[in-house]
Amino acid sequence: MILLYLMVETYEELREANSRKDNIRFLLTKMTLWGFLFGLLLESEKVIALTLGNFNLNWLLAPAMILLVFIFIPRTYVLHWFGVEDPFYIWMFLVPDTHMVLSILAGVLLVRSLSPSE
């Protein structure tokens, strides 16, 4: 519940900062972090098993790490690097809704890549 509250608060701060034309990079990174933590909490049973020492690496670690790198790059940098007329695979990191879904997915994938198979 607290994490959802923090996500909503950060979203409101982001809207206000965007309307004032402030620097929003920190807020975008914070929002990505909340989404990533939410993804970790979705797999809370496996997170508990990981803290108890049940580690088992699998092939999901590579996609999880690649996705982690991409989601923590603020979209303002992506726009600067690639411009505004880019293909879908670039735009999926720019739309806030898909960015949040990818952040949650990165958290879930990371936990599943480190936990033993069921």
Score class of each variant (00 low, 15 high):
F93Y: 12
Y11C: 05
I66N: 05
P87F: 15
M92G: 01
G35W: 00
L33P: 04
T29C: 02
S103F: 00
N54Q: 11
Y5L: 14
T32C: 11
L94D: 04
G39D: 14
L4F: 12
A106C: 09
L42E: 05
S103G: 15
E9C: 03
N18G: 06
F36K: 03
V69D: 05
V101P: 02
Y5R: 07
R25I: 11
V95A: 02
E12K: 09
L14S: 06
L61C: 05
N18H: 03
M31Q: 15
Y77N: 02
L109E: 04
L79V: 04
T32V: 09
P116F: 04
W34M: 03
F88Q: 08
F38N: 00
M31F: 14
L50Y: 06
L4S: 12
L94H: 04
S103W: 03
M65I: 14
M7D: 06
T29F: 11
I48C: 02
F88G: 14
A64K: 11
L33A: 15
E85D: 13
M31S: 13
N54K: 14
F26W: 12
F38R: 00
M65K: 03
L3V: 10
F93M: 15
L110E: 07
G35I: 03
Y5H: 08
I73W: 01
R75T: 13
D22W: 14
L33C: 11
L41P: 01
K21D: 05
L114P: 00
P87T: 14
F72V: 04
W34E: 00
G39K: 10
N58W: 07
G39E: 08
L114R: 07
S103T: 04
V8S: 07
I71G: 01
A64N: 06
M100N: 06
D22N: 11
L94R: 15
E13H: 07
F36M: 07
Y5E: 09
G107A: 13
L57I: 15
F82L: 10
T76V: 13
P96Q: 08
N56I: 01
E12D: 02
E16R: 12
L114Y: 01
T76R: 04
L102D: 07
E16Q: 14
